[in-house]
Simulated assay, not measured.
Amino acid sequence: MFRRFATEPGLIGLDWHGFRDAGAPARRFVVDGWLGEEDGRLIVEIEAERAAAGFVSYRSGLYGGVAKHWEIGIALLPHWRGRGIGWRAQAVLCDYLFCHTPAQRIQAGTHPENIAEQRSLEKAGFQLEGVVRACEFRAGAWRDGHLYSRLRDDPSPWERGPG
């Protein structure tokens, strides 16, 4: 699946950044099974159908050189989008990262035109922080992004119900 997202234009939606090395995902899997200390990927599986719907990812970052945080992302295959899978997968990943690491902050970015992902992040307990201007080069131009965050002390979507 990781190879497909790296080599099939349009499969990943707005996050397509051109062709990537098709062998890189397999080489990374051999190194650490995509479960690194600083970044990784996990398959989103639909248990009832025994099907892989996509993947969630995480990578570490630092604010001020000392405050570690996580940035997460998700990529679902087109036929699994719009079914409520994305917000649940992102919420579970946040719960996992908060449970097993001392990070206070998890953030996620999305495109201004990706309304579905914005709603998914909100359901997963994230809050919009603002617009990050000209943060991404995509489709021949610099584009703005929306930055969302969920803090350790924010209510879990499981506690308050998806918003």
Rank of each mutant, 00 (worst) to 15 (best):
G23C: 00
G23Q: 05
G23I: 01
R28G: 04
R28C: 09
V30F: 11
V31F: 10
D32K: 14
L35M: 15
G36H: 12
E37A: 15
D39S: 14
G40I: 08
L42Y: 10
V44Q: 01
E47H: 11
E47M: 10
A48D: 07
A48L: 03
R50S: 15
R50V: 07
A51L: 10
A52Q: 10
G54K: 03
G54Q: 09
F55M: 02
V56I: 09
V56Q: 02
S57G: 02
Y58Q: 07
R59F: 01
G61N: 07
L62H: 12
Y63R: 14
G64V: 08
G64C: 09
G65V: 13
V66P: 03
V66W: 07
K68P: 02
K68C: 10
H69S: 07
W70M: 05
W70G: 00
E71V: 06
E71F: 00
I72L: 06
G73N: 04
I74T: 02
I74G: 00
L77E: 12
P78S: 14
R81A: 06
R83Q: 15
G84W: 03
G84N: 08
I85L: 09
I85R: 01
I85F: 06
I85N: 01
G86C: 10
W87D: 01
Q90D: 08
A91D: 04
A91Y: 03
V92H: 07
L93E: 02
C94I: 05
D95G: 15
D95K: 08
Y96C: 12
F98T: 01
C99S: 14
H100D: 13
H100P: 05
P102S: 08
A103C: 13
R105E: 11
R105N: 15
R105Y: 13
I106W: 02
Q107V: 06
Q107C: 10
A108E: 06
A108R: 04
A108L: 13
G109E: 15
G109M: 14
H111C: 01
P112N: 06
P112H: 05
E113Y: 07
E113K: 09
A116H: 04
E117F: 09
E117Y: 05
E117N: 13
Q118C: 10
Q118M: 05
R119P: 00
S120T: 15
L121I: 04
E122L: 10
K123S: 04
L128I: 05
E129K: 12
V131W: 07
V132R: 06
R133V: 11
A134Q: 15
E136A: 01
E136W: 02
R138V: 13
R138N: 14
A139I: 04
A139G: 04
G140M: 14
G140F: 14
A141P: 01
W142G: 00
R143I: 03
D144V: 14
G145T: 13
H146D: 03
L147D: 05
L147H: 07
